[in-house]
Amino acid sequence: MNAVVAVSGLTRRFGDFVAVDSLSLNVAQGRIFGFLGPNGSGKSTTIRMLCGLLQPSSGSGHVLGLDIMTRYEEIKRRIGYMSQKFSLYDDLTVEENIDFFSGLYGVARARRGARKTWALEMADLGGMRNALTGSLAAGWKQRLALGCAVLHEPDILFLDEPTSGVDPLARRLFWDLIAHMAHAGTTVFVTTHYMDEAEYCDELALIYRGKLIAAGEPGELKRSALSQHIMEVRVARPYDALDAVERSGLVQEAALFGDTLHLTVADAAQARAQLPPWFEHNGFGDVGVEEVMPTMEDVFVGLIEAEDRE
């Protein structure tokens, strides 16, 4: 495996607070790696260390084969970075933003024309090269920011919550572009709060309170990361049912999706036996109880709640 990111025991303290606690992970070349965790769990601190912006307190790590302790200046030049804030200049035109970032990233003069053409085409902004960036819709801005972040053809691209506030269609286009780049060999390291986006990743890691608590492919995590089971129940008067079943002691958690209840239980067979008579007895009639695959959000929330119980 050709590891583009390899860290071991990576730790960062701020005073007494351990923001990142002996984190170890590897990311292979050309993979889309999703880095998930609640606010304040250490995601941004980790990314800042990997990008050469923050010194680790202890542990070791390499990005693109370069030691993050000593060769951070080289790392900074060879990575691409894009955050939710896009860092574009609203009062510059599309073309001016591209020129600006070309200069900033030290793209060779001879390459600049070709890279600009590439970025405009990639972002589908050819017809809008003279538009003011501030006047673009969020989806266009996002694609322009992506284009600007990779003008210098980095081997690894860090995306920090790249699609906050972007609509589903634009988001799907964005992920198509990311998949293309990964296919061409760029490694992509992305953080997101949106679990439907986590599904686009080849691999996921979930951190909480600075520690890695789960890692794997999305499908594998959904199949096996949770010790609990999710039972789906379709019921009339779902709000009343939600309230009542939460207090029944039969389930660990209940959530509502339209007119469908998702009930988290420890034992699926027991739930299948106990739940239908309980609903019947409490005046909700005859309901079917079916086990369903947990969503990525179920997995995420379930794993964090399990950590909290310990």
């Binding site: 606010n39 906050s164 709060h193 939600l242 959000e297």
Partner: peptide
């Protein structure tokens, strides 16, 4: 819930229910 993490988001929805 723009920019809110999944754990807080689920809590937010619980309040809505």
């Amino acid at each position: 819930t723009n920019g809110v993490d999944p754990v807080s988001r689920r809590e937010f929805w619980r309040i809505l229910y």
